[in-house]
Amino acid sequence: MSSNDNHHAMDEARAEVASAEALESPEVVKAATVAATTGPRRSPLVTLAWITPGTIWLLLFLIAPLVMILLVSVWNRTPTGFDAFAFSVDSYGRLFQTSVFATTLRDTIFRAILVTLLCVLIGYPIAYYLARCVKAVKFQIALFIVVLAPFWVAYIVRIVAWNPVLGRQGVINYFLVEIVGIVDEPIDALYFSSLAVTIVLIQVYVLFMVTPIFFQLATLDNASIEAARDLGATPAKTFREVVFPLSLPGVLIGCIFVFVLVMGEFTTVRLIGGGTIQSVGTLVYDYYKLPDLPAAAAGATILVAVMTVGVAVLLRFSKIREVV
């Protein structure tokens, strides 16, 4: 069993201990650890039973639709949908007939990278504070629930609520025009703009960054941090050399979440962009409405391909960091 699994088992054991405060002796932790790491070997049949539901689920709801989309993208378009088994790659040609798709794809990738980076910058300190600075578990949980608060409101409401903030008659413009008076006219670029879309995407998705980093930091082995201090590392150096590298798996998972979600974004872009900002998602929807299902499927295929490359790059990057 790898050391990673060992860590995991210890984490679980520790969580149990935390929830049952009476059982805080080291012996209990040790016993739990031993139990978790030396369980009886399962028979292959049991393993098969465990993986079957998940496999069926993935085959039906992930693999099958993806294969279907890929197939539709290379079938011929007809007025009523498509001609199955009449293969052509015209749909991809139609996407690139004008520069709109290529430009939008570039902008979507750029936006996804930007939002992901900003989510790390904003999300990491929040996660760090929650996990390392708040000592009592109950305060940690309470504050984490506060962080989750936006999720208590419907997604659409969270988006629409930006109108009175960023709009022409919103709080920020009111402040700039009426109170500070540094501009004569409200700034239009604050809403129905690329800037607005970026701001709102960060707000909507930053939690997908905070959560995995928080869990990673909360379960860090304190012994390694104490060791660093004992060896004379400053807090900054401890963070740089020990805490941050150990939290990278959380950052990586957060980056994958945010990158993939923002790449596929449709509703936020549509509503906050006021119809003037496009993403690959909105273009696919346009083709779907036309209806040009093969071109919509081709757009979706390209989107999935780009996401896959993005995730692969992230995973590769993390491997390099682990080796170093």
């Binding site: 989309i69 539709v72 498509f82 199955a84 696919v284």
Partner: peptide
């Protein structure tokens, strides 16, 4: 469109399936 919004893209595949037998 609220209904249509998110369902839209997902429906592409469903609509596509129906088209095979429907036209």
């Amino acid at each position: 469109v609220r209904n249509a919004g998110l369902a839209g893209i997902g429906l592409t595949a469903a609509g596509a399936l129906a088209a095979c037998g429907g036209s």
